[in-house]
Design a protein around this nucleic acid. Structure first.
Lengths: 108, 108
DNA sequence: ACTGGTACATGGTAACACCGAGTACCAGTA
DNA sequence: TACTGGTACTCGGTGTTACCATGTACCAGT
């Protein structure tokens, strides 16, 4: 699938929130997880900028822990604000996707 | 629903293409149509910038016609490139929305 | 010493939706 | 006549976002 980046704007951050909400995890693993899920072109740099933004906006708790196979990892988990933001994200997603799908079906 | 603008990025242009694909129409009417469809905060200025972009990218044919109730209207219709772009848009939408919904369900 | 996988940070870019202000046409009305 | 309100389009500027390129650095195996 060619160039999905514009369409991911505004949703990729929510996806990262969702992954973190599932379990405490870190940037490199989040990137791999998103790739597995079909977001194949999402690259580390993108995820790290999102994580720094989440941290700056106070949506996550951060803990640095050593790794046995490389440099230390920064583990992220959602705090209250993060969980609320995640809920808002899914509400928005449901709203918008419903409307877009309706537009699509009315055309057909 | 609060502030959907980021999530609309990359999709609103496709929605405009779809509306034009349904029938030849003009900016002001497209804005009203989108508002009806639930994209309540989409405003004229936004639609016009999209239309100018579509025109610049050669995806639409433009015809100016007088109106009986105001200034002349610029009517837009899809050309071949526009229909192809619209098809690509729906393919991307299906791809991404499927993956996001999957992510959502695996969480639940 | 070298390679490759792991792990994070950062300055710059392009694209997008949005905003604000402006221009202009027309009908109805006070 | 002047004014209002609905119709209709344009354009310069803004903030946010995902992406890119590059750099740093840890570690295991050869």
């Amino acid at each position: 699938m060619e160039d999905l980046t514009e369409m991911l704007k505004g949703t990729l951050e929510g996806c990262v929130l969702e992954v973190i909400g599932g379990e405490e995890t870190y940037g490199y693993a989040i990137t791999r997880r998103l790739n597995e899920l079909g977001f194949v072109d999402v690259i580390e740099g993108t995820v790290y900028t999102i994580l720094l933004r989440l941290e700056r906006n106070g949506l996550v708790e951060v803990t640095k822990r050593p790794s046995e196979v490389g440099p230390p990892r920064k583990f992220y988990s959602l705090n209250k604000a993060g969980r609320e933001e995640l809920a808002r994200f899914w509400a928005k997603w449901q709203y918008i996707s419903a409307r877009i799908n309706k537009l699509k079906e009315e055309a057909a």
